[in-house]
Write a protein that binds this DNA or RNA. Sequence first.
RNA 1: GGGCGUGUAGCUCAAUGGCAGAGCAUCGGCCUUUUAAGCCGUUGGUUAAGGGUUCGAGCCCCUUCACGCUCACCA
Length: 510
Amino acid sequence: MTEYTSLEKIRLEKIETLRKEGVEPYPTRAKRTHTSAQAIVAFEESETIHPVDQPPAEVQVILAGRIRASRAMGKLTFAHIEDGDGRIQLFLRMNELGQERVDWFNKMLDIGDFIQASGVMFRTKTGEPTLHVHDFKLLAKAVSPLPAAKDEVTDSGETVRHAVLEDPELRARQRYADLAVNPEVRDTFRKRAGMIRALREFLDYNGFLEVETPILQPIYGGAAAKPFTTHHNQLKQDLFLRISFELYLKRLLVGNLERVYELGRDFRNEGVSFKHNPEFTQLEFYWAYADYLQVMELTEQMVAYACQKVTGGMEITYQGTTLNFTPPWRRLSMADGILETSGIDIAKHTTAKSLFTAIAAKGKTPNPKATRGKLIDFLLSEYLEPTLVQPTFVYDYPRDISPLAKSIPGDPLTVERFEGYVAGFELCNAFTELNDPIDQEQRFIEMGRDYAANDEERHPMDEDYLRAMRYGMPPCGGFGMGVDRLAMLLTDNHSIREVLLFPHLREPEE
RNA sequence: GGGCGUGUAGCUCAAUGGCAGAGCAUCGGCCUUUUAAGCCGUUGGUUAAGGGUUCGAGCCCCUUCACGCUCACCA
């Protein structure tokens, strides 16, 4: 049984009263001729464009939206409604509507209710385009009060927000209320949608085919992550939610689909943080006959295109820092980057033992069981990553942490792989794909050995993937990007929760 | 999972261990160009939950929960 607050009880009583008066609080149909923005544009055009010897034409409109503010002033009432385009002021006067209707508006309607209002546009004394209301109708009554947010416009023209819903937990749990009262949150998700549209446009234009591959997989792979498990009852089959798309997309290249991409959800059963959510949106593409250097060029063009589409330029401000996505981005070999930032030359340490000693000499303590590749990765995140503020490609990675990437010809310890870093975190990861089925099988075996101590991280052997490789896969470049992270950058949000409509949260307290 | 921090009215926040408060919102009035409208009045609380210390706990102690920051984990 729902427990109502005293404020809600008052509104429920109003709903009863409305029905007794014969007013349906939730009518089935609404009518509107203009959005708030369209009404203002039409009005301003009428003011400027009219024959010199005639007054401006009346602009009659029917608007619909949610009441966000209401100021009753005796025989006048001012209110603001908000629709998908913005806000617009309503003006109600007893002269036109009569005392009864204006009183009814003030008494029976509340902030949060949806209404439609018809009338003629005019300007108030202060110059604000306003609807002079001749009639109005309740469209949907709100039972629960919205968390009130008020905007004050100071003398200097700045907008100061008061009584904002700002508790991050509540905002995420009740995203509907957050969206209803915080316009910048709606804007974040419009930008996110625009960004995703831009990524698709870019890849479509470049001849990539959008595909969909299984989310429920009998064998997971393509990344080092712990999966979620589930079960198909009738088939009595254990299944995993995918941790990446990679192994399925590359099967498609075996099938002669030369350029494919997938934009969808990955699931990783790992910790939650400001840049990790258990389910997140991933973009992967695979490009036959290309290598990682071509992928690098396409990547910077794609991100720059998305940035241009969302923000109108190549430069953005992220958490107070100006970032410039104009291609070409800085390119830095991993060995050089680590040498510059840590003073350790990984080329001189070809074994894990030697490298561990060098790191220990710096006073750092990585996991002593780590492989050479893991130690290099440790150096990357410890020293290099925090310095990579402007978009940078770090390239040429250790082989043993890149089991699906192709080695550099003549350098068995290093693979053709790069990661894109921005604002000190990893944005994307790409490599020249390994297409030698014998080598691939060997890598899976090595990896099984390296990770034998840790069952959860162990990469299961995917026999069907190897079979596909044996049919032959063209040389290709592959790419993966955390789409939520790009959304964080382009909307200037520090936390992934702010760019997910419904981020994962713990069970609420009862 | 570890460390630090936060949690008080619908919203935003106060309150030396000593009567739980303010603004906005609600409700009742006044007001024909307001815009955080204003003015007068009114209502609203299991101080996140549970336990303890104390004559007395929002405040001190313990446990739990949620959130934030951070560390760890995260090819």
